[in-house]
Structures are given as C-alpha cells and as structure tokens.
Simulated scan of single mutants.
Amino acid sequence: MSAQHTIPGNTPDQHESFTPHPEDPVRRRLLLATAVVGGGGLIATAVPFVDSLTPSARALAEGGPVEADISQIGPGELKVIEWRKQPIWLLRRTPEMLASLKTDEGLLSDPLSEKSIQPESCANIYRSQKPGLAVMIGICTHLGCSPVLKPAGEAAGLGADWPGGFLCPCHGSKFDLAGRVFRGVPAPTNLPVPVYEYLSDSVIRVGEKVA
C-alpha cells in the first residue's frame, strides 16, 4: 500500500474528503509528473522481465544440434567435437575393442546401463546405434573432469589385464569403451550418451532440433 502524502498547509480534515483545487496549476503539474514517472517505472521494470523469458538467438544457436564428419576417424581413433559447451567423444571402435565390451561386464557397476542416461536407440551393450562408433559426453559423472582414453594392456599403466577404456585424471574413475563405469570408483553412473542421428554413412548430427 502506498503512503499518503500531504502538502503543508493543506492537511485534510479527518471527516472530509480532500480534493485539490481544480485551478491550482502547480498541483496539477505535480500530480501529472508523478503519474508519468510512476508509469514509466513500471514499464522499465516489466520490459527486462519479459526479455528474460524470451530466448535469444545466441541461446538457441548454442543449444541447437551440431553435425560432424566421421568419415576420417580411423580405427581406434577418438575425435572430439563440442555441443552445448560439452566435449562429445566420437570413438571408432575396432573389433578387439568391441570384443572387450563382452568380457568386462563383471567389472562394471552398471553393465546394462539401467541407471544411466542414453537414448532408447542406444540401450544395448555397445551403447550406440552402430557398434563401430561410440558417441558419448566426455565428462566424468563424479565431479565433471574429462577422462582420458587409455588403450588396453600394461602400456596404459593400469595393469596387464586392463581391457581398455577411459581414466579420469582427477579422482581415478574408470570407464570402459562404451562409457560404462567400473566398480569401486567415485563416479556413480556411466558416461551419458547424447541424442544423435546418422544423416549419412559419413555424417552424424548430435542434439535435437530447437523448436
């Protein structure tokens, strides 16, 4: 409730309504100026609020899908693109890499990806639409670091029985070549798989179209 203001010398009686004299030009100008300023203040306050509810062209662009050429990714190679300011891994898996996904299930926390994020089209052992190409968000599900690809074997520094996968350099979380998390590490879930689709045999699109 706004406070009532009075002008000295014109204090209204408690039992009478107070009406400014219609011939007082100073009073009329004062009331008019107050109304204009007050109305302008309401408009100035409302406009930024409306703008905040309208997505900018930049926001739409950043959230939109991105396309990637996968034709030049060689066997065993990892390509990184960016979508929504996140690294997206494109890993061309060899037959040996694919075979490891069937032998390491006993070492994994969620081998069937029941507690993890992936599109329905990737709800399989490979967590991909086509076994040969893995598409994952390269951010550890523990505290957001980016894991590093470590090949199979003792050369990776993880022991001779290491089947190949990813190691988070921050706190030691390990993931296999489908992004499935190993047991006994800080990361709680598998690496997320974004929505993606094949536009051709050599091009994929990551992300959904923005309406």
Rank of each mutant, 00 (worst) to 15 (best):
Q4K: 12
Q4Y: 03
Q4N: 11
N10E: 14
T11H: 09
H15Q: 13
S17A: 13
V26K: 08
L32P: 00
T34K: 00
V37W: 04
V37I: 15
I43F: 14
V47D: 06
S52H: 11
T54V: 15
P55Q: 02
L60H: 02
G63I: 02
E67H: 01
S71E: 07
Q72W: 04
Q72D: 14
Q72N: 09
I73H: 10
P75E: 01
G76N: 02
L78W: 14
E82I: 05
W83K: 02
W83E: 03
W89F: 10
L91Y: 13
R92P: 03
E96S: 11
D104T: 14
E105Q: 14
E105C: 03
L112V: 13
E114K: 15
S121N: 07
I125M: 12
R127T: 07
G132R: 08
G132L: 04
I137F: 07
T141V: 05
P147C: 08
V148K: 13
V148H: 09
K150C: 11
P151Q: 07
P151D: 09
A160N: 05
W162Q: 04
G165I: 08
H171D: 08
S173Q: 04
F175H: 05
F175S: 06
V195D: 11
E197S: 15
Y198N: 13
K209M: 11
